[in-house]
């Protein structure tokens, strides 16, 4: 079955919803940058497009059931992985919104600030945990190898970028970057890993 056949058989693919979400976030960013919306309204607008995660998951599940394109096999482990990622990503957006709102609108006590600041990090740790569980639960050894390879490439990418940036920062060549951006670099590295899988094994991988 070709990718086009699979699309016809299963309706809109998950990438369609990812594209919609990216477009919605681009629109929200444009509104925020131009000052068209301000304050709490921005947080509401940031959370709203995330609702597209659910049709995206449904589309990905249909793709799994159809055994279609991408590196998707029997899929139970991948289905659980997607649910966990959607759950922790939703949690991340909510706690990030709450943290930003509370910190900007009041001056909470040190303990409250600490707890609020820990929550988004814990949600991101949840996503790392989901990748780890996928590696443990995936029964298909080839798919498991692809996820491990992708994660190793992402880790190498993020650590290399952090090390190089750190020294450049020490030498005052680049501006200061908050450490949570290295998690973002790791997620970007997963994309690099997927491309490497595609080149070497002809398939993108499962993450």
């Amino acid at each position: 079955m070709t990718s086009a056949d699979t699309n016809r058989a299963t309706g809109k693919g998950p990438l369609f919803y990812v594209g919609l979400m990216a477009a919605a976030y681009a629109a929200v960013a444009a509104l925020a940058i131009t000052g068209a919306v301000e304050g709490p309204a921005i947080y509401m607008l940031v959370i709203a497009p995330f609702g597209l995660v659910f049709p995206m998951m449904a589309a990905a599940n249909r793709r799994i059931d159809a055994g279609g394109a991408g590196c998707i096999g029997k899929g139970e482990a991948q289905r659980r992985y997607m649910k966990r990622v959607a759950m922790f990503s939703s949690l991340y957006l909510v706690v990030l919104g709450v943290m930003t709102f509370v910190l900007k609108s009041s001056e909470p006590h040190f303990a409250i600030r600490s707890i609020l600041a820990l929550l988004p990090g814990l949600a991101v740790i949840g996503i790392f945990w989901a990748v780890g569980r996928l590696i443990v639960e995936e029964q298909d050894e080839f798919l498991r190898m692809l996820v491990i390879r992708q994660s190793l490439i992402a880790t190498g990418f993020a650590l290399s970028a952090a090390t190089v940036w750190g020294f450049l920062e020490t030498a005052d060549v680049v501006f200061h970057l908050e450490a949570y951006w290295w998690a973002v670099a790791w997620f970007f590295g997963l994309g690099v890993g997927a491309a490497a899988n595609r080149v070497q094994y002809g398939t993108w991988g499962a993450v």
């Binding site: 055994g67 590196c71 998707i72 096999g73 029997k74 029964q139 298909d140 050894e141 080839f142 798919l143 190898m145 070497q200 094994y201 002809g202 398939t203």
Partner: peptide, 19 residues
Amino acid sequence: LAVSRQSVNAIETGKYDPS
């Protein structure tokens, strides 16, 4: 084999050696 089609393809084309 209870594996993905991608696994069969990778083994068949010699890109992946099975356990």
